[in-house]
Design a protein around this nucleic acid. Sequence first.
DNA 1: TCTGCAGTTTGGAATTATTCTAAAACTCTT
DNA 2: AAGAGTTTTAGAATAATTCCAAACTGCAGA
Lengths: 142, 142
Amino acid sequence: MKARSVNLCNNKEAASRLRRAGLRPTRQRLAVARLLLDGRDRHISAEQLRDELRAKGETMALATVYNCLHQFESAGLLRPVHAAGEAVLYDTNLREHHHFLDVETGELTDIDPAMVSLPSLPDAPEGFETESIELTVRLRRR
Amino acid sequence: MKARSVNLCNNKEAASRLRRAGLRPTRQRLAVARLLLDGRDRHISAEQLRDELRAKGETMALATVYNCLHQFESAGLLRPVHAAGEAVLYDTNLREHHHFLDVETGELTDIDPAMVSLPSLPDAPEGFETESIELTVRLRRR
DNA sequence: TCTGCAGTTTGGAATTATTCTAAAACTCTT
DNA sequence: AAGAGTTTTAGAATAATTCCAAACTGCAGA
């Protein structure tokens, strides 16, 4: 019985996932894929990712981490969230959903999509198309 | 018949507005107030503001521009919008509303509040309170 | 298997937005 | 006009990210 989430525990699966996305499976991209594309919903910054990789023994230049994140984004494997603190966070949850943001820590939490409905979204103005929609509820410790 | 928008064409009115907000009316704050608190709805960054001030013959340190913006924000005279490009933009429109963002230029445009309704906003998690809500529709030139 | 080249990675410098700092310049009250 | 407490300022410092040119690597073909 296979779960919906793809398990990229080994390089073979990660590699084919990358190839399907049009990315050459380099050592660095494989490491990132195994860490981020395992089906868990998370939000991670470039620096956090670098640290987690390092903890797994995969050190790579910060520029490479940024490169990977951008490539994964273009390939539709990750979605950037801009409204967060200072740094851009990458969201492994590709379903439509929204976020709580703890403005103190910068931490993001998914909002259950059932809790919010956007019944009437305005059409994009002439000459534009909607790239994405971000609803962020900024939270402060009470 | 006075319009709803306060006209801060002269320093007297700007000064009293600042005092009411608990801010000492310094030359720099007066200049910013006259430029931003005239009732027009706009979105402006620190650098843009500095340039507009300079164009009016009011030069001031960029640090002062940032100071002013923060103080105006704390005083409830401006609202920061974070979801925009790289820089924080300050919104002179204090009514609840949302934004289109041109991701190319970073330009924000208000979304008519009648066009969007957020019927069921999720409650803030235990121990938190909602500071603000930002709905941003990111646009790309077609 | 070997080779070459386009595609990748890398460290460090460069950029951008913003904050910090300590000193000089104000504002307000007395 | 003087003192105290605020503000402003220029420039240094920080943080996230991008740029760069050189070194490296995956893979297609000989």
